[in-house]
């Protein structure tokens, strides 16, 4: 554990070390934003709409009491989605999808000696391969989280409306009631940290793969497990830090 933490720190130093060509970097960045971010849009939409719906209905069933006005469901659903579900849940999903993708791509390059081929040319392979992924994730993840918030709240609206549990007007009033924009900022801060964890931790496991196809699979599993654990850990830390 301590060994990996030390090695991971050195790895980050390499990633942020001497960069090679800027024009090449920009091309890579755009490609990564497309392949890591845009390709995840579909799953984020699906997850978010269902999550919003479920959160809204559960809240509605839990506070079914005559004195509590229906719009509080909107308030509670909004806060859970903004504070927790959109950032943490979406990032956990991304840890699975993007994390395994990054680890297996870089791991394959390692076992097929493509990384050696970069190193022998005197190119900073860690920086060349990993930095565009990290930056792409840091740019694209907050956007995905923002989209997830919107879609999640819309999912709640649909569910409340279709089941008749929460009338549209009440829900819309609720989601505007005592709205604190800091909740969004808070979530976006979290998503940036999570994006960094997913991309760098997964790249670390990929970069230090040794062996063959079997080991690439193993690295990819480790990437998902480790980044998920760190997301949960940092979620706790950041909540304490930013909300307490």
């Amino acid at each position: 554990m301590l060994y990996h933490l030390g090695k991971y720190t050195l790895f980050l130093k390499k990633v942020f070390g001497r960069p090679d060509k800027h024009s090449v970097f920009l091309n890579q960045l755009i490609r990564e934003m497309d392949s890591l971010g845009v390709n995840s849009l579909g799953i984020v939409l699906v997850i978010s709409i269902f999550m919003g719906a479920v959160v809204t209905l559960q809240t509605a069933y839990n506070i079914e009491m005559p004195f509590i006005p229906k719009y509080t469901v909107g308030v509670a659903a909004r806060d859970s989605i903004l504070l927790e579900f959109s950032s943490t849940m979406v990032c956990l999903i991304l840890a699975g999808k993007v994390g395994s993708n990054i680890a297996s791509e870089i791991g394959t390059m390692r076992v097929t000696e493509q990384i050696d081929a970069l190193d022998i040319m005197g190119i900073n392979s860690a920086g060349f391969l990993v930095l565009p992924k990290v930056i792409a994730m840091i740019i694209i993840t907050p956007l995905l989280v923002l989209i997830s918030m919107g879609v999640g709240i819309f999912g709640g609206y649909l569910a409340g409306n279709l089941t008749g549990e929460v009338p549209a007007a009440e829900y819309i009033y609720g989601i505007q009631y005592a709205f604190r924009s800091f909740y969004i900022t808070y979530s976006l801060i979290k998503s940036v940290v999570f994006a960094f964890i997913i991309s760098s931790v997964s790249a670390y496991w990929g970069y230090y793969t040794f062996g063959g196809a079997l080991e690439v699979g193993r690295s990819s599993t480790k990437a998902v497990v480790t980044s998920s654990i760190f997301i949960l850990l940092f979620n706790l830390l950041l909540t304490q830090l930013l909300l307490a």
């Binding site: 097929t112 000696e113 493509q114 050696d116 081929a117 022998i120 040319m121 005197g122």
Partner: peptide
């Protein structure tokens, strides 16, 4: 390194 060329076992 710029004076080195290398051919890897699996082409890479």
């Amino acid at each position: 390194r710029q004076d080195m060329g290398m051919l890897f076992q699996g082409s890479a």
